[in-house]
Amino acid sequence: MKKTFLNRDLIQRLGFSMISLVALFTVVPIVGVMIYIILQGAPAISWEFLTAMPRDGMRAGGIWPAIVGTFYLTVGTAVFSVPLGIAAAIYLSEYASENWLTRTIRIAIISLAGIPSVVYGLFGLGLFVLFLQFGTSILAASLTLSIMTLPVIISASEEALRSVPQAFRTVSISLGGTRWQTIRRIVLPQALPGIITGVILGLERAAGETAPILFTGAAFFLPRLPGSPLDATMALPYHLFVISTQVPEMPFQIQYGTALVLIIFVLGMNLVATVIRSRARAKRQW
């Protein structure tokens, strides 16, 4: 009897140590890699690096056009996906009843969320670039990214809307509010922090993606900034891809610097989203 207890104890200890080790092995590389990129990339980052055009076949100079391009693409994505995504979420949370149509919408959202990013690229090429003749352009790439971002924005916004207490809606209606007035004046403002968080998380994904813009809007190298939404553009993720695979004798420092800027761009958005979320939670009145 005593022996089995000892055994059980030993097994538990072994088990726990093993699991802890597994967790450690998962987390340590993440931290290690982040620190490594920061250490390697930080020396590359200077005012010139951030604000100058690339020179010498991108082996020198800065990454300004890639930064601007990613900014344009992110804003372009937001222009299309934010209104559409929020409206769709409002529909699901405030108007839709449980029927086959709603279920179909939910299945469609799940499907959209799972489609590989390169397939979005193909679709954008087929529809926006070729069929609608937008060409390889910021417009086509933004539209492609927006559709990819849509399920993230819809799901997060719907959750935020649903978390607003039902009683607010009942009271507003009982005071003579219409459904839209109730949404506009009570539900949306209360759900806003959650919606913004979801939107940023969606756009963060869009900002870091390469595959969907490969054939819809990304340019290998441009000597000047894009002048209109119908121009192609450089972008940070694609630029990192290019300088780490397509350009021989690329200085490591520029590569790490570019990677670091991209990470800061993306994780910075993530940080903003997290701050908004926790601030709003603290301030919430219900």
Binding site: A167, S172, P189
Partner: peptide, 10 residues
């Protein structure tokens, strides 16, 4: 209408 639980709007 006034409800059982006071629900003030935010």
């Amino acid at each position: 209408m006034v409800f059982a639980r006071p629900v003030v709007l935010p």
